[in-house]
């Protein structure tokens, strides 16, 4: 059955005789000039918390007294004292019951204030950055790409990717934006310079 549907659809497409298209002209900007400052400004526009820091462990002292999820491969120095660190394996209930999650990122985009997670170093699987209500993301200045085309070519597009631009939000009521729905309601970005 399935293969006959496939053959029929492909035959219909060929029967439509669409002429060859002109080559794609990529006249848009491939590079931008934005860096740390623009990234910080654009992330803040989404009503995320943005802090530019030089000392990550010092900055993470704000998490003291909380139960925070940390992927298995975060740098040891991030695991500051006074925080209850929750480590894998973690169940959905444990993730849901945590106070927050601390991760790094794969790349960030200045133009749009976006962080990209690819499940690589210090990021963990996708559920880790989804269920906790507070996401603290550490972004090194050298991870910030200027524009979407700059950042849209990760080394392995087949990894599960999540582009995060601000806390969860909705525009579904009268087309006005409101922050805080199902994803983390607080996004805190620490830019390390």
């Amino acid at each position: 059955m399935a293969s006959s549907a496939k053959e029929e659809i492909l035959a219909r497409i060929r029967g439509a005789r669409v002429p060859a298209a002109a080559p794609v002209v990529r006249g848009y900007h491939r590079e931008g000039s934005g860096g740390v400052e623009l990234f910080a400004e654009r992330v803040a526009d989404y009503r995320a918390v943005v802090r530019t820091v030089t000392d990550v462990p010092e900055a993470l002292k704000s998490l003291r007294g909380k139960r925070i999820v940390a992927p298995s491969d975060v740098p040891d120095e991030w695991l500051v004292d006074g925080v209850t660190w929750l480590r894998e394996p973690l169940s959905i209930e444990e993730l849901d019951g945590s106070d927050g999650v601390l991760t790094g990122c794969a790349v960030a985009i200045a133009d749009t204030g976006t962080i990209v997670l690819d499940g690589g170093v210090a990021q963990g699987r996708r559920a880790l950055t989804l269920l906790p209500d507070h996401h603290v993301c550490v972004v090194r200045a050298d991870q910030i790409a200027a524009s979407v085309p700059d950042a849209a070519n990760p080394p392995e597009p087949t990894r599960p990717l999540t582009f995060v631009s601000g806390p969860s939000a909705t525009s579904d009521i009268e087309l006005n934006r409101v922050e805080g729905v199902h994803g983390p309601r607080t996004l805190e970005v620490l830019i390390v310079t």
């Binding site: 996708r126 849209a152 599960p160």
Partner: peptide, 30 residues
């Protein structure tokens, strides 16, 4: 890279929508 710029600004009028998910088949453990 073209559509991730065209779509959010045209639809919700944002520089980027809060979340874009990309997956490829099945990823063990995730």
């Amino acid at each position: 890279e073209v559509f991730l710029q065209l779509l959010p600004r045209s639809s919700t009028a944002e520089r980027m929508n809060p979340y874009t998910s990309v997956w490829t088949g099945v990823t063990p453990g995730d």
